[in-house]
Write a protein that binds this DNA or RNA. Structure first.
Length: 279
DNA sequence: AACGCATACAACCGCGAACGT
DNA sequence: CACGTTCGCGGTTGTATGCGT
């Protein structure tokens, strides 16, 4: 039947987004909400394809994104989850509030892979390097850096792995790259912490405290000095948003609580790329 | 200062799943 | 149930920036 191109390639702009485009997209999404990405560019007056708009929004412009490098807790969590889920970045990202799959994927490829390799651990299989691939697979114990051995009892995909994750995520054809597809069997059911983590879509690591509506901006900073590097900048960003209609942006949720502390959480758009919005 | 290489990350592409008709 | 459309995901690429020589 042939796939219809997601957009008319000829009339679509590609490459880095400009501040103007960002403004248009933010303005549109916050005014109208996320609906039918295919229609967004037209309605927002952008010469981009819907796909590109969605990506830009979800990976970069969403106000609830954290910015900055993953902290140790997050990084360890990514490793743990990767050991269990493989390259299912979206699933991993779902456990890290404010982080995107793209961000985690990039961080994995640029930082964690190397780190694990240095530690003598194969970042793909999470097994010690130079160890031949066997039916025994390793997974990180959730609370420790050292890998814990989990015996792969049999090749048949055991349905005993943790319930939700397995049923939901094993349906994916993309098994982790672990040898002989053993990944699906290395979910240590006995690990209550990981079971909990994988069952709940709620923040649980230390840094998630920053999502608990810190009482004051300073309190927020003390909790999360990665993402809250510049509260003033966040304020400035939001104020700038007002210039192009943030009143209608639909941040109604912010009315309930102190604006400043909410921006700590939701407006962590402090990278230089975002700051171009201030210009 | 200039060049080349390495690194980090934003963005693109293609595929498959989900959904609607 | 078949087909078409849209969306989301994961892999990959392109480019800006940093660093060493």
């Amino acid at each position: 039947m042939g796939r219809q191109p997601c957009c008319d390639k000829l009339s679509v702009k590609k490459g880095p987004w400009t501040a103007e485009e960002d403004k248009k997209l933010i303005n549109f999404i916050l005014t109208n909400g996320q609906c039918c990405w295919r229609a967004v560019p037209k309605l927002a007056g952008l010469l981009r394809c819907g796909k590109s708009c969605r990506l830009r929004w979800t990976n970069y412009l969403r106000p609830d994104l954290k910015r900055g490098l993953l902290n140790d807790a997050e990084e360890q969590l990514v490793i743990d989850l990767h050991a269990r889920l493989g390259n299912r970045w979206s699933k991993i990202a779902a456990r890290l509030p404010g982080r995107t799959d793209n961000e985690i994927k990039n961080h994995w490829n640029t930082h964690i892979k190397k780190k694990l390799t240095k530690m003598g651990i194969d970042p793909v299989t999470h097994e010690p390097i130079n160890k031949p691939c066997t039916t025994t697979t390793r997974a990180f114990n959730s609370s420790k850096q050292t890998p814990s051995v989990v015996v792969d009892h049999q090749p048949e995909p055991a349905k005993t792995e943790e319930s939700q994750v397995s049923s939901e995520e094993n349906s994916s054809s993309s098994q982790p790259e672990n040898c002989s597809g053993a990944e699906s069997n290395n979910r240590d059911d006995d690990d209550p912490l990981m079971n909990f983590l994988l069952e709940k879509d709620i923040p649980f690591f230390d840094d998630a405290l920053s999502w608990d509506f810190p009482a004051t901006p300073s309190a927020g900073n003390s909790i999360n000095n990665v993402s809250l590097s510049s509260w003033e900048e966040n304020c400035a960003w939001l104020l700038d948003c007002q210039d192009f209609g943030v009143e209608e942006f639909g941040f109604g949720c912010f009315n309930d609580v102190d604006m400043g502390m909410d921006m700590n959480m939701n407006m962590n758009m402090t990278t230089s790329s975002n700051m171009h919005l201030l210009e």
